[in-house]
Design a protein around this nucleic acid. Structure first.
Length: 466
RNA sequence: GGCCCCGUCGUCUAGUGGCCUAGGACUCCAGGUUUUCAUCCUGGCAACGCGGGUUCGAGUCCCGCCGGGGUCACCA
C-alpha cells in the first residue's frame, strides 16, 4: 500500500506552530515511506475562511519547505459530492431529518448539563414519524449513529483507544441551508483523495470515533489514524491561535531559519535516542510514528535559539547576506552598494559565529555597512577616552605604513608593537575595535580591518585619533 | 460535569523488570581557550507526582489518588 498523507488546516487563522508540526510529521511520514503528501484547505465554513489565511498557510508551508505534492484541494469545491454522500445515507436509512431549532438544542444542552447528563443531541427526531415535520422549517440531516457497542481505533500514536457508542450523539451532516459540515467533508474527501494515514493533533481524537462510524456506514475502510499530542505554551497551557500563538511567519520575522524550526519541531514530541541535531535527510530516514511521544510538550524558545545558532553557523555566507539585507537597509535607510555587500559576505564567517538569529546577525553586521563617522555606543565611547584615543593615535603611523593589509600580517604587526612597548594586546585591540566598529564587541579585530580594507580602516581610526 | 488522553531534571527527551548510585540536549553556574564577544572544551546543579500492590527485584506491570490537557456546535 502506498502511503498518502495530508495536512488539512482550516483557513480561519495563520499557520500556527502546532499546525506546522503536524504538517512536518505528515510530510516526513510520506517521505519516509515513499508516499505522497497532500494539502487540503478545510474551508467548509465559508463565513470564517479568508483568502489571507489561505495565503498565510501556503506561504508558511513554502517557507518551511513543506509544500504539498500537487495542488491544494479546497474542501468547499467538493460540496456537491458531500451532499450526494449524505443523500445516500438518508436513502439507506442511515441518516435522518431533524427539525430541532437552535433554541431547542440549546435548551436541551442546558438541561442535560443541569442534570449532569451527556450534553449531546438526544436523538428526538431519530425515529420520529416524518409526518410530524413542522412546515416551513428546513431540517438538518443527522447521522444515525450506532448506539450499542464500542468504536475502537487502532491509533498509531495513542495505541488502541475505545469509546462506547452511547457517548457519541447523532452529528449533523448537512446544515439546514443544505451545506455539508466539516465532519462529513473530511470523511468523504479523505476517502476520495485516497488518504491512507490521517496524522493530526489529538484534539481530533474524539472526532476519529465519529468519523470511523461514518466510514463504516458509507461502506468504506477507515484510514489509519495517528493523533499527536498538542504543543503547549511555556506555562503549560494550551498553545493555540486563540491564545496568542504565533504564526510561522512570525518566527521568520523573529529571525529563525526554516531548517532550525523544522529540527526543533521534529524534536518536540519525537525522539531518536540521544540525537539532537538532525538533518532533514536524516529525519526522513529515521522518522516513524512509533517514536512519537504521547504526552504534550511545551514550547521553549531557549532551545530553538540554540538550534538556530547552530544552523546559522552552518549556513552559506551568501544566503545569510541576502537574509540580513532587508532589515539592514531599513535601519540604515538606504540601499547597499556592491562594496558593502562584498564586505558583508567576506565578514560573514566571523559574524555568523556570534549570532543566534537573523535580526541579531543584521545588527552585528551593521557597522560594516555604515558610512563614517562611526557612531560610538556608550561602551565604545568609554573605551575611547583620552588614553584610548592616544593608543589609536600612537599606532596609526605603524598601520599606515603596513605593507600587506591582510588579517594575519596586521596581527603580526600589532603584536610586534605590543611586545616592543610592553603593552597587553587587549589594551590596543579594544580601542581599535571601538573605533572601527563603534562597539566593544565584534569579530576578531584584524579580520575586521581586513574586511574594511586599508582606506576605510585608516579613515575610521583617524576619526578618533587625537 | 460525562468521556478520552497524559504525568522522568526548569524545558525537550532516552529508558519497554535487573545494564539506572536514571543517560543526552537546552537553560543556569564554575573553570579553560582567547584581542572583545561568541564559538569551542571541561566540570557542576537538577527528575522518576503521591500511595498501595505484583515480583527475588519497578522509572518500567496493576489499582487508587492527585495534577495537567483534550473534547462534548447547523466551528473546523
Amino acid at each position: 500500500m502506498t502511503v498518502v498523507t495530508r495536512f488539512a488546516p482550516s483557513p480561519t487563522g495563520f499557520l500556527h506552530i502546532g499546525g506546522a508540526r503536524t504538517a512536518l510529521f505528515n510530510w516526513l511520514y510520506a517521505r519516509h515511506h515513499g508516499g505522497t503528501y497532500l494539502l487540503r484547505i478545510e474551508d467548509t465554513d465559508r463565513k470564517r475562511s479568508t483568502k489571507e489565511a489561505i495565503d498565510a498557510i501556503l506561504d508558511g508551508l513554502d517557507w518551511l519547505g513543506l509544500s504539498p505534492d500537487g495542488e491544494a484541494v479546497y474542501q468547499s469545491a467538493n460540496a456537491a459530492r458531500h451532499v450526494e454522500a449524505a443523500q445516500g445515507l438518508l436513502e439507506a436509512g442511515k441518516a435522518y431529518r431533524c427539525y430541532c431549532s437552535p433554541e431547542e438544542l440549546t435548551a436541551m444542552r442546558e438541561e442535560a448539563r443541569a442534570n449532569g447528563k451527556p450534553m449531546g443531541y438526544d436523538g428526538r427526531w431519530r425515529d420520529r414519524d416524518p409526518a410530524d415535520a413542522p412546515s416551513g422549517t428546513p431540517p438538518v440531516i443527522r447521522f444515525k449513529a450506532p448506539r450499542e457497542g464500542d468504536t475502537v481505533i487502532e491509533d498509531l500514536v495513542q495505541g488502541s483507544v475505545t469509546n462506547a457508542n452511547e457517548h457519541l450523539d447523532d452529528m449533523v451532516l448537512l446544515r439546514a441551508d443544505g451545506t455539508p459540515t466539516y465532519m462529513l467533508g473530511v470523511v468523504v474527501d479523505d476517502h476520495d483523495m485516497g488518504i491512507t494515514h490521517v496524522i493530526r493533533g489529538d484534539d481530533h481524537l474524539t472526532n476519529a470515533y465519529r468519523q470511523t462510524q461514518l466510514y463504516l456506514a458509507l461502506g468504506w475502510e477507515p484510514p489509519v489514524f495517528a493523533h499527536i499530542p498538542l504543543i503547549h505554551g511555556a506555562d503549560g497551557g494550551k498553545l493555540s491561535k486563540r491564545h496568542g500563538a504565533l504564526g510561522v511567519e512570525a518566527y521568520r520575522e523573529m529571525g529563525y531559519l526554516p531548517e532550525a524550526l523544522r529540527n526543533y519541531l521534529l524534536r518536540l514530541g519525537w525522539g531518536h535516542g540521544d540525537d539532537e541535531i538532525i538533518s532533514t535527510e536524516q529525519a526522513i530516514e529515521w522518522f516513524d510514528l512509533d517514536a512519537v511521544v504521547r504526552s504534550p510538550a511545551r514550547f521553549d524558545f531557549a532551545k530553538l535559539d540554540n538550534l538556530n545558532g547552530h544552523y546559522l553557523r552552518q549556513a552559506e555566507d551568501s544566503r545569510l547576506v541576502e537574509l540580513i539585507l532587508p532589515s539592514l537597509e531599513s535601519t540604515l535607510g538606504h540601499g547597499l552598494d556592491e562594496t558593502a555587500k562584498s564586505r558583508l559576505e567576506k565578514a560573514m564567517g566571523g559574524l555568523k559565529e556570534r549570532a543566534k538569529k537573523i535580526d541579531e546577525l543584521a545588527e552585528n553586521a551593521r557597522f560594516y555597512a555604515i558610512n563614517r563617522p562611526v557612531p560610538l555606543d556608550q561602551k565604545a565611547a568609554a573605551i575611547l577616552d583620552q588614553e584610548g584615543r592616544q593608543k589609536v593615535a600612537d599606532i596609526l603611523p605603524l598601520l599606515k605604513a603596513a605593507e600587506d593589509w591582510e588579517a594575519q600580517a596586521l596581527e603580526e604587526l600589532v603584536r610586534g608593537y605590543a611586545e616592543e612597548t610592553g603593552t597587553k594586546l587587549g589594551k590596543i585591540a579594544q580601542p581599535l575595535r571601538a573605533a572601527l566598529s563603534g562597539s566593544k564587541t565584534s569579530p576578531p579585530i584584524f579580520d575586521v580591518m581586513d574586511v574594511l580594507g586599508r582606506e576605510e580602516s585608516l579613515n575610521r581610526l583617524s576619526d578618533v585619533a587625537k
